[in-house]
Design a protein around this nucleic acid. Structure first.
Lengths: 190, 190
DNA sequence: CGCTTTCTTGAGCGATCACTCAAGTATATA
DNA sequence: TATATACTTGAGTGATCGCTCAAGAAAGCG
């Protein structure tokens, strides 16, 4: 009987993710969102409930996309090449809203306030870490890298390097692609 | 003839640095500062001019302290051992306001808004990078590490790793000391 | 003490924050 | 076409933001 929304909810979440990713949680006001989504406050709150709820949707999509890209890479190139390509892929996209990881930005911004979104960001990072570890494990099983290292230790160091790379990539005057290449190289030496 | 301030300006800047470091720029309100510094708005603005001006003072002190610690380490242990110890030192202090680097937090929070403080944070990072490079250079001259690498490239990778480490250290359930040890190890293999 | 100069106080400024809600509008069914 | 059921609108909520300023208090000097 009723009326349908005249927007594509999924696309609105994409746009929100881009805004939040770039500007952060506090740095994105409802006015910014209203402008980007072309929504008046009433529609916004009917559709999403709150700024935090939309941020959560946006971050979930961000995390899901990242994980999907990693899995695609692994499917196409195998575990070790996927791990080698992933850092470059993360920083080379010029029309991405930011180079730095949205999860780490959220963590750094909100952790000190004990905001639930910080815990959630950390959880997403943990999930990624787990998949990194799985890829290291597979690379060991296939003999691509030395089997004596703990895959979880490798994964943590790898993720740490990746986070550092993506912070560095956010800076001006830093050749992040060179750092990404070095990260890839160091995997070859395992 | 006049009256003296009844506070220690230097200590106020220290306290501000701790607050800003932990909570970030947007996450620290003037009410927070008034409470931490025990100052009413009038005194605050007479003493510091603006929130941004105080943030700048705080960040400058943060950067100066970091640089001083690096130089002390180098003086006491020599270049390569200093570089090896620095990461552990950065994350082990339990009563520091945060594990993550205040410069990177500032950069990530304010860069998208083209805030001058972001540029300034990047400048401080550049200064650190230069001193890392100098230490790598000295380590090469003394034969402690292979002289074929570009010290500046080594410094950038090192700083990137350091930033990643300090983001990781901010997370719960991550053994950052282990990562720091690996960073130190990898320097030994140069 | 009296005067000058600075520091301190705190009420309150306009702007913006996230958010609400009553009224109006469009649409799918009966 | 009439009605029910959403969705959309936008003025406006109280709270908080960074910040101002006039008035009062304190300290160094004669």
């Amino acid at each position: 009987m009723p009326r349908k929304p005249n927007y594509d909810r999924n696309e609105l979440i994409d746009r929100s993710r881009d805004l939040f990713w770039r500007r952060g949680w506090a740095g994105t006001s409802l006015k910014d969102l209203e402008a980007a989504l072309q929504m008046k406050p009433g529609s916004f709150y009917a559709a999403f409930g709150s700024k935090d709820a939309l941020f959560e949707l946006a971050m979930n999509k961000y995390a899901a996309d990242g994980l999907a890209r990693l899995k695609d890479l692994a499917k196409e190139h195998g575990p070790i090449k996927a791990l080698q390509r992933f850092p470059k892929m993360a920083i080379k996209n010029d029309d991405a809203p930011a180079k730095a990881c949205m999860l780490s930005k959220t963590l750094l911004e909100l952790q000190a306030h004990d905001h639930p979104l910080a815990k959630e960001a950390n959880q997403h990072l943990l999930t990624m870490e787990g998949h990194f570890a799985e890829l290291f494990q597979r690379a060991q099983s296939s003999g691509e890298i030395d089997g004596r290292h703990d895959p979880l230790v490798l994964a943590r160091r790898y993720q740490s390097d990746l986070l550092g790379l993506r912070v560095s990539a956010e800076r001006e005057g830093v050749d992040a692609m060179a750092i990404a290449a070095e990260i890839a190289d160091s995997l070859a030496r395992l």
